[in-house]
């Protein structure tokens, strides 16, 4: 919850401050060349529609897919963590801890290098583009963290609820699905959204794999505008502003849901 709380706790003038920084930059740079700061801003505005529709939209798409896959896999892994079978439980615990505690970039590179660039299904060659590998690479840590969210939520339900259901002849599976999960489902939503915000902010990592998302395209746009150093702050500042604008409402929403679903005992 830390990230959402930090973002949601930022003062209202944060975007203004970022903008001010972008505008204040030329004062320190004291441009001597012909390429002025106004020119840089003009370049940014020229590229803006491209950066948003071809760049940031792709970050959002990657985050959706990675979150979807990570959530489904994480839910299964989380339930495996509370399995009564020791082998299943320990394997799930190990996988959870391994993927939770690995650097995301390392996982991304491993997936990039380990997966083939195309797979053959029934004689049909299906290419695996880099962005798909990036989705899988980002889904892995999300899976591990969702797994912990599920485990934590299930274990937050008092054991007395398990006993009461057992005494009523509910099987373990019935208890889990009918009694325990309905009680703790809402409690999983705020931490799950928090991980979505973290994931979205991690999507620029994909630029290192050559995926054409916002940061990759910003760099290409700057190259297209002759790589003037004056371009750096406006372009990266703009990227930061976009991520803030996207994640801030999510963070606020997370915090309000967290308050609403706070465990009342």
């Amino acid at each position: 919850m830390m990230v959402s709380r930090w973002i949601a706790g930022l003062p209202w003038w944060t975007p203004v401050a970022i903008l001010a920084l972008i505008f204040a930059w030329p004062l320190t740079a004291a441009a001597q060349g012909k390429f002025t700061y106004t020119d840089a801003m003009g370049e940014l505005f020229r590229w803006m529609p491209f950066l948003l529709t071809k760049g940031f939209l792709f970050n959002v798409i990657i985050s959706f897919f990675a979150m979807g896959i990570g959530t489904m896999a994480g839910a299964c892994l989380g339930l495996a963590q509370i399995s009564q079978n020791p082998a299943t439980r320990n394997l799930a615990k190990f996988a959870t801890q391994a993927f939770r505690n690995s650097p995301w970039l390392v996982l991304l590179y491993i997936v990039l290098l380990a997966l083939p660039f195309e797979i053959v299904i029934f004689g049909i060659i299906v290419p695996v583009p880099d962005w798909m590998k990036a989705v899988i690479g980002l889904a892995l840590p999300i899976m591990a963290n969702v797994s912990e969210v599920v485990r934590g939520a299930v274990q937050s339900v008092p054991t007395a609820q398990w006993e009461a259901s057992e005494a009523l002849a509910f099987s373990r599976m019935q208890t889990l699905w009918q009694i325990i999960l309905p009680q703790c489902f809402k409690r999983m939503i705020p931490p799950w959204m928090n991980w979505y915000a973290i994931l979205t902010m991690a999507t620029p990592l994909c630029s290192l794999l050559g995926v054409e998302e916002l940061i990759t395209l910003s760099r290409q746009a700057m190259e297209g505008s002759d790589n003037h150093p004056e371009l750096l702050v406006p372009f990266y500042g703009f990227a930061m502003l976009i991520f803030f604008a996207y994640c801030y409402p999510i963070a606020r929403w997370t915090i309000s849901l967290e308050r609403k679903y706070a465990v009342k005992l």
Partner: peptide, 8 residues
């Protein structure tokens, strides 16, 4: 049970 343990 002592603590009722109804399904909340």
């Amino acid at each position: 049970f002592q603590q009722y343990n109804l399904f909340p």
